[in-house]
Design a protein around this nucleic acid. Structure first.
Length: 780
DNA sequence: TTAGGGTTAG
């Protein structure tokens, strides 16, 4: 905040009303004695002349004699200034404007910039009129914006009153009115801007198209956009080519995409024909809604209108293609760009690099960066952030930190986003305390963590079970004036579900729902999913009804969780009905929808129904994922069609789908049950070859297989070798082996393993010990 | 027009 001189420096003289001598005679007659004295005083330190009563005339005279730079920077002036009252300063500015507007500007700027003075509204308007008269519109805007920053929203009525009462007859008054409306609009104080516009209409002052465009832009998310557009048409002022583009953008933002297209068509052949920006807006709108093909057709249509796509057109479309995962086509458009003489820029390369990053293809992202360097472009902070994010998401946090070092060595400063990426990956790897230190580092270097940063950390803490600390951080965030959205609440809700009881979580959820602030489907989805997982389908459906009553649109996740709940409670027919009804909600079934149902049929042993669903899925162009394939492999295993299962595993690789440890566990277990331990171990080796980390479950399955169908000594050897390799084993691995030895009556070995288990700190339950003792007794 | 945060299936 600017210091106000009058708040800091007490007045040395009482403020008296000023009686100004005719200024012209002071300035344009021969130098007065006192002015000559000022010149002397500049060399001495005597300030006896600096009585405020005379200050105005002294300053004016001084300006005439000494010239502005000598006077305004001189000692006398510096001593006098702090003792001037607001009213005196207003008067000086007023008078200076009449005699020499440049001096008024100089005086105004000097007080503001060197003395941190906050000028009155009246002085600001005087200066605004000087700028308007000189057509220095940027300065005019700047001076008004500074005033509005201090005045804040809701200040329009009083400012309009002042502008009307004291300045209505001034030259360039209309320009000031227009800029005032524009400045309000630029600060997103739209109600104030609308107030000024309404006043202007009453006073018959015309607004410029720039002001209208700015307001149209700020209101493009709302219905009021139409009123502004109609006002533009009614005013008869010529539209700029941006007016229609902003209007089209607004229609797209309000999801009125059909209306946007119709509007574009309407403008064809009229005075304001569609321009490149209008097309770009539509391309962006369609891409954001996921209709990249339609976006492409508009891209092509530009040529038909004799328009050439610019870098924005290409980048927008390439972005849409990248988000849709169509990297090949995105690259084609980059080549097309070059062929049409539009040079791909840093934005193009960043978009493409992110496209590859989204697909987890970091090598592709690097190729793009190399091309970027080859084209003579340098990576910017976004490029680095995309790369850091890519590494962090694949769990390679260290590589992310190395890139941060490189960034710093190249003189980039990490911003909030770059920090948040690092924080997020630390949280995901469970290194929440390190993430919290990074938060401190951010604050130390003066970066203010935002909602995303806090939400990430709250999520990290809650996921680790530290819900209380998460809630404390949430409070800290609110105390800093950061207004929460549903993200931090979802983190806390998940934490409560994980750590506390469902009832506790439900109470938190109900408080959020009652507050009326949380209308986010994700919060409902979290709660519904928990009920579904618990088999409490009644509660889940109840919440679903609440969503509909509130007019909140369910998402495919909502329906998928409900379908899961019906499957869990073995109401497959009901689950099937929900699948059939998905279209009625304007939703599309996803691979999760089908996989959930397919798994349920598989569990029921109805493999035929499972394959029927797979067919339906493919016919509806829903791509099966590696999870879908895992379910199908499980189904084939149930039918003992092991060769087909192995074939499907190979098909997955051919299709570019990567099996994970669960896929292998499924098929390995099947070969164990078929007593084909050789193939089971072969598959285990294949996992390692493909860099898939076997999970403790993999080893449980293998140990159990060897115990049941092989030689117990081999099982012991396998077990020891795993321990030697420091491979993480669970309680199940120990109990499997203990049970096997107990069953064979080898009490010593069983007791030895039991001791090892206790030593490792595993909890021992009665369910493990009693059956083993019974087995041992039988053996003896 | 480009970078960061939350929910679902095996």
């Amino acid at each position: 905040m600017l210091n106000r001189i009058h708040q800091c420096v007490p007045l040395r003289f009482p403020v008296k009303p000023l009686i100004l001598s005719p200024l012209s005679s002071l300035i344009f007659t021969k130098p007065s004695v006192s002015a000559a004295k000022i010149a002397e005083d500049d060399l001495t330190t005597d300030t006896s002349l600096s009585k405020p009563r005379d200050a105005v005339s002294e300053i004016l005279t001084g300006l005439q004699i000494l010239g502005p730079s000598k006077l305004l920077r001189g000692h006398w002036f510096r001593t006098v200034v702090p003792s001037l009252s607001l009213a005196q300063i207003d008067q000086i500015i007023h008078s200076l404007r009449l005699e020499n507007a440049d001096y008024a500007l100089l005086f105004f700027d000097l007080l503001k910039n060197e003395y941190g003075f906050r000028h009155s509204r009246a002085s600001t308007f005087v200066i605004a009129h000087v700028f308007a008269g000189k057509r220095r519109l940027k300065d005019l805007r700047s001076v008004l914006q500074q005033m509005l920053q201090d005045e804040g929203s809701g200040s329009a009525p009083s400012l309009c009153e002042l502008l009307w009462n004291s300045f209505k007859d001034w030259d360039s008054n209309g320009v000031v009115w227009d800029m005032l409306a524009f400045a309000y609009s630029r600060f997103e104080m739209v109600h104030d801007a609308l107030f000024v516009l309404a006043k202007m209409k009453d006073l018959n002052v015309r607004a410029s198209i720039l002001t209208y465009n700015s307001l149209l832009y700020n209101l493009r998310h709302t219905d009021i956009m139409w009123d502004v557009y109609n006002a533009i048409k009614a005013s008869g002022i010529p539209q700029s080519e941006y007016t229609n583009s902003i209007f089209i953008d607004g229609l797209c933002k309000q999801s009125l995409i059909q209306e946007a297209v119709a509007f574009l068509r309407e403008t064809e052949g009229k005075e304001s024909r569609p321009c490149v920006v209008s097309f770009n807006t539509l391309i962006s709108g369609f891409c954001k809604m996921g209709f990249v093909d339609v976006a492409k057709s508009f891209f092509c249509m530009m040529f038909k209108h004799g328009l050439l796509p610019d870098a924005y057109s290409y980048n927008t479309l390439i972005h849409g293609l990248c988000v849709a995962g169509s990297m090949e086509e995105a690259l084609d458009f980059m080549n097309d760009m070059e062929e049409h003489g539009v040079e791909p820029d840093v934005v193009t390369f960043n978009i493409l690099a992110k496209g590859f990053r989204l697909l987890g293809l970091m090598s592709g992202a690097w190729k793009i960066i190399h091309k970027m360097l080859h084209n003579g472009l340098n990576p910017d902070i976004l490029t680095y952030t995309i790369l850091i994010c890519g590494y962090c998401l694949t769990g390679n946090v260290e590589e992310g930190f190395k890139l941060r070092e490189e960034m710093l060595s190249r003189g980039f400063h990490l911003n909030i986003t770059s920090y948040s990426v690092l924080l997020s990956s630390l949280c995901k790897s469970g290194r929440v305390n390190e993430a919290l230190s990074l938060l401190c580092e951010m604050e130390t270097i003066g970066l203010k963590p935002d909602l995303v940063t806090y939400s990430t950390l709250i999520h990290g803490l809650c996921k680790q079970g530290e819900v209380q600390r998460g809630i404390e951080l949430y409070k800290q965030m609110c105390s800093k004036g950061i207004h929460p959205n549903s993200f931090p609440h979802s983190a806390i809700l998940l934490g409560l579900l994980e750590k506390g009881t469902t009832l506790e979580a439900r109470m938190y959820f109900d408080t959020l729902a009652k507050s009326g602030l949380m209308e986010d489907i994700v919060l409902y989805n979290i709660m519904i999913d928990r009920y579904a997982k618990l088999g409490k389908i009644g509660e889940a459906v109840q919440l679903y009804k609440q969503i509909i009553e509130k007019g909140i649109a369910p998402s495919i996740v909502t329906v998928n969780s409900l379908i899961y709940g019906f499957c869990k409670t073995r109401k497959l027919a009901e689950a099937g009905r929900w699948l059939d009804a998905i279209g009625a909600y304007g939703l599309e079934p996803s691979s999760v929808t089908y996989t959930t149902l397919m798994n349920a049929f598989c569990e029921e042993g109805n493999i035929h129904a499972m394959f029927e669903l797979l067919q339906e899925m493919e016919s509806r162009a829903v791509e099966p994922t590696h999870v879908t394939y895992t379910v199908v492999i499980k189904g084939l295993c149930k039918q003992w069609k092991l060769l087909k299962a192995v074939q499907l595993l190979e098909d997955m690789y051919a299709k570019g789908l990567y099996p994970d440890e669960m896929t292998y566990n499924t098929i390995i277990q099947c070969f164990c049950k078929a007593q084909n331990l050789k193939k089971a171990f072969q598959l285990h080796n294949e996992m390692l070859l493909h860099n898939i980390q076997p999970s403790p479950v993999t080893y449980n399955v293998l140990i159990n297989g060897v115990c049941v169908y092989g030689d117990l000594k081999d099982a012991d050897r396998l077990f020891s070798s795993l321990l030697d390799q420091d491979i993480r084993l669970t309680k199940v691995a120990y109990t499997t082996l203990i049970k096997a030895h107990s069953a064979k009556g080898d009490v010593d070995k069983a007791v030895f393993l039991f001791g090892q288990m206790v030593e490792k700190g595993f909890e021992i339950s009665i369910e493990i010990i009693v059956p083993s003792l019974i087995d041992c007794a039988k053996g003896v």
